[in-house]
């Protein structure tokens, strides 16, 4: 077997299969973060503003832990974006002359729009950090010396444009996960005729639940359930 020479040190990084593995592994990390983030956010429904504020304090209790988590997430996001960009370039080169007519059989809206939902979600994440972590969009509410998360969230989501962007980003996140959550298994080689259809249903359900969970917060603020 000597059809082509393989340089093993650089080979893995160059193949599309490996890039998809990077997408999948970083995707799992970001998905795990989303679950934790939503679980924390839902404390806002406890009826006691101190609950979510205590949770925020707990997250900030140990700066080394906090920054480790932030760096892991940042690296995952960067790798996810780099791999996506490289794959997108590959795809653009793969079909220099397009079709006059092309049907889309077998794929779905979510799978075809990954390259659009992704960057919009990334922009939203930047906005979201500026808004509720840095307080650059709406001034953060303070409770003594500590930031008051509960009232900062309410102040923010009373601005209709902020709520609208949040809801739009979460709808796109739902689409992104609808495809990504099962696709990551396929990319690392997990597929089974019996379990993959179940996995797809699980992915769709989970994407929907996660999006509903996040969207419920600005909606609750706007209709006055949380005040």
């Amino acid at each position: 077997m000597s059809a082509i020479a393989i340089n093993r040190t650089t080979f893995f990084c160059r193949t599309p299969v490996a890039k998809k593995v990077v997408m999948a592994v970083t995707g799992v990390i970001l998905f795990g973060y989303l679950i934790g983030h939503l679980a924390g956010n839902l404390l806002i429904y406890s009826g006691n503003p101190a609950a979510i504020n205590r949770y925020a304090e707990l997250l900030h209790a140990s700066p080394p832990m906090l920054w480790t988590a932030r760096i892991v997430l940042l690296v995952a996001v960067i790798l996810h974006i780099i791999a996506a960009a490289q794959l997108w370039l590959l795809k653009r080169r793969a079909r220099p002359v397009g079709y006059c007519r092309k049907e889309e059989t077998g794929s779905n809206y979510a799978s075809r729009t990954m390259i659009w939902s992704g960057p919009i979600i990334a922009l939203f994440v930047i906005f979201h950090v500026l808004h509720l972590t840095a307080g650059k969009i709406v001034p953060l509410a303070m409770a003594g010396h500590e930031p008051d998360v509960y009232h900062s969230v309410i102040d923010g989501f009373r601005v209709p444009m902020i709520s609208a962007f949040y809801i739009l980003a979460m709808v796109l996140l739902c689409l992104h996960l609808y495809h990504g959550l099962w696709s990551m298994f396929q990319s690392v080689g997990v597929s089974h005729p019996r379990y993959t259809p179940l996995l797809k249903r699980f992915a769709a359900t989970f994407a929907f639940i996660l999006a509903i969970g996040f969207i419920s917060i600005p909606v609750s603020v706007m209709i006055g359930i949380i005040r």
């Binding site: 599309p16 793969a94 794929s107």
Partner: peptide, 22 residues
């Protein structure tokens, strides 16, 4: 290793699990 490498060499791109092929 070799078949994936050759497919890459040919400019055939990556699978993003759309399912249009099947």
């Amino acid at each position: 290793l070799r078949m994936v490498a050759q497919a890459t060499e040919e400019g055939l791109s990556y699978c993003s699990n759309h399912g249009e092929c099947e």
